[in-house]
Amino acid sequence: MSHNIDPTDYVEVESGSLKFQDESQQAKFELGVCMAVYKWDELNTAVENSWGGANSSEKRDWISAIVIELFDEKVVDIQLIEETLLYAMVDEFDTEVDNDSALEIAAIIMKFYKDVGIKNYTDIEFLYNKYQEKQARGASNVAKIHIEEDPNNPDVSDSEEDDEEDENIPTLHEDSMDIDEEPSGPIVDDDGFELVQKKGRKGRR
């Protein structure tokens, strides 16, 4: 698919912004952006595995929002959308995507913008209907914010969240490890015994 995409394809207005003045058109475009972002398998994998932490689902919605904001400007091209998606994956999920998937999602978003401009909502509604069907079947939990409710990882997500916190702390904040881990159990004294025990538990993982 990507070989048919022109990364220099763009939309532009002479004045104002690319945002649709008609509220119903703008709403359809925003829905289209969300559906395109939700279609991105690499991002879905990052969310389902909580690579962005406990609020990974919220971060996915935030990515949709920053893409929508790109169209507050006078000109947007496919490459700008692609770069925005890739940077967001690195910043929010510590994940580098080295294939053309972000380019393909960017191309879909650009197509949706042009479709909405002529009030053609067919493809957007098709994706939205597929999304709703998946939700109705219970086949996906992407609309839920709480990672612990992920049907693919019902038993391990809580410990994964703890692991996220542990792994993000290591050498930068070793001195404060006992403080960061306080919620896990009571502090017996200030002599460091709790810290030693917790380090040993972490080492067994």
Rank of each mutant, 00 (worst) to 15 (best):
Y131E: 12
N153T: 00
L80F: 03
E174Q: 11
V116T: 11
D98R: 06
E194G: 08
N99I: 02
L172C: 14
I187V: 14
E194T: 03
T171C: 14
F71G: 08
K74M: 14
D166S: 13
N129V: 12
E148L: 11
D178Y: 02
P151L: 08
N168H: 04
I108N: 15
D162G: 04
I105S: 09
E167L: 11
V90L: 15
N99G: 03
N168G: 04
L80N: 01
I68K: 07
T171V: 14
Q197E: 10
I124Y: 13
E167D: 07
D175Y: 06
V76A: 04
S184N: 10
D190H: 07
H173G: 08
Y87G: 06
E133I: 06
M110V: 05
G117W: 10
E165W: 13
S176D: 14
L80V: 00
V116Y: 13
Q197R: 11
V142M: 14
D150M: 06
E181A: 10
G185A: 12
I81T: 01
Y113D: 10
K134I: 04
P170F: 10
Q197S: 09
F112Y: 15
H173T: 02
V67E: 04
D189S: 12
Q132L: 15
V75E: 11
N120P: 01
S157Q: 10
S140G: 05
G138W: 02
E167C: 04
A136M: 08
I105V: 13
E73S: 13
T171E: 15
I108F: 12
E161Y: 06
D123Y: 03
E149N: 05
I118M: 14
V75W: 11
D189Q: 03
Q135H: 06
K74N: 10
I105G: 06
A139I: 03
G138K: 02
N99R: 04
T95V: 04
D155W: 15
L85Y: 02
K144G: 12
S176M: 11
L103D: 00
E104C: 02
K144A: 13
M110R: 03
P154S: 01
D166L: 15
T95F: 15
F71K: 03
G138M: 05
L80D: 00
Q132K: 13
D94S: 12
V196G: 13
D166N: 15
L195Q: 11
V196P: 09
N168T: 01
E125F: 05
E73R: 09
Y131N: 12
M89V: 01
V196S: 15
V116Q: 09
I145F: 02
I169D: 09
H173E: 07
E96K: 08
M177S: 05
P170M: 06
T122H: 15
I68T: 07
I78F: 01
D77S: 01
D77G: 03
E83Y: 02
D163N: 09
D94E: 08
E161H: 08
E104R: 06
V188C: 04
T122P: 05
D94N: 10
L86K: 08
T95A: 08
D155E: 13
V67A: 07
I78N: 01
I109Y: 13
E182V: 03
N152F: 15
S157C: 06
R201G: 05
G138Y: 02
F126Q: 09
F93Y: 07
E181D: 11
D72M: 10
Q197F: 12
Q79E: 09
E133C: 08
D158F: 10
